[in-house]
């Protein structure tokens, strides 16, 4: 009985990992499409939205099924509780990827202003945070997420600097307004994705230790 349940839990985690990787992939690919102004690549991200949504629904159902049939306790319960949060965060990350991909059409007609300012750098940092949060979930190892809070501070600062820089370009030339508004939105999406990485990390911490912490 318990053995079958624990096999199912392993499968649940493996499925969740796949979903988290897909969300991460959508974000990474969207940013790449934005940098390269590649509309086709952007369209491939948008095309993933049903897949990630279906994954979320399936995993969520699996969680409820496992709860109803096994009344999990202690670590088992915490794994399922954490998983429910991880899939929500992963879906959001994937959706922000889609939102970024949607800007590529408008932003591909002319070269980027100031090489997208700090957006590529910010995206690298955010994706590292997501990778580390996912790695912690996969490996039951909290070390990769130890310093996530201070990394999140860096992300907030970057968003703010992109905002100020964007405003500067808008004031220089009103023709930049539409483009820079997009940049500011993209920075905002990336900052939200970092928050979701922190959410995943908080829940992994709970899964591992039973302690609830706030990371932001």
């Amino acid at each position: 009985m318990a053995e079958k349940f624990h096999t199912e839990l392993k499968k649940l985690k493996a499925d969740t990992l796949k979903m988290a990787q897909l969300g991460r992939f959508m974000l990474r690919t969207a940013v790449d499409a934005l940098i390269r102004q590649d509309k086709e690549l952007a369209a491939s991200v948008v095309a993933k939205k049903d897949e990630i949504h279906d994954m979320e629904v399936r995993i969520e159902e699996h969680c409820y099924q496992l709860i109803a049939l096994n009344q999990p306790m202690a670590k088992d319960m915490r794994i399922i509780a954490c998983t429910l949060k991880v899939i929500t965060a992963s879906l959001r990350i994937g959706r922000y990827g889609k939102s970024i991909a949607n800007t590529v059409v408008d932003l591909s007609s002319k070269p980027h202003i100031a090489n997208l300012m700090s957006i590529p750098h910010m995206a690298d940092l955010v994706i590292d945070m997501i990778d580390d949060a996912i790695a912690a979930y996969e490996s039951d190892d909290l070390r990769p997420i130890e310093d996530l809070s201070s990394r999140d501070d860096t992300i907030d600062a970057l968003r703010h600097s992109i905002f100020r820089e964007g405003i500067t370009y808008m004031m220089e030339d009103p023709k930049n307004i539409s483009r820079c508004t997009h940049y500011i939105m993209v920075a905002r999406y990336l900052e939200r994705c970092a928050d979701h990485a922190c959410k995943i990390a908080e829940n992994v911490q709970y899964m591992e230790t039973g302690e609830r912490v706030e990371i932001h």
Binding site: M1, A2, H6, A74, K75, D76
Partner: peptide, 17 residues
């Protein structure tokens, strides 16, 4: 005890491991 026991032995018993 049932959410996060302190002892690994308890954890293992409660979760059937």
């Amino acid at each position: 005890i049932f959410e996060h026991p302190k002892e690994e032995l308890t954890e293992n018993y409660i979760t059937g491991r």
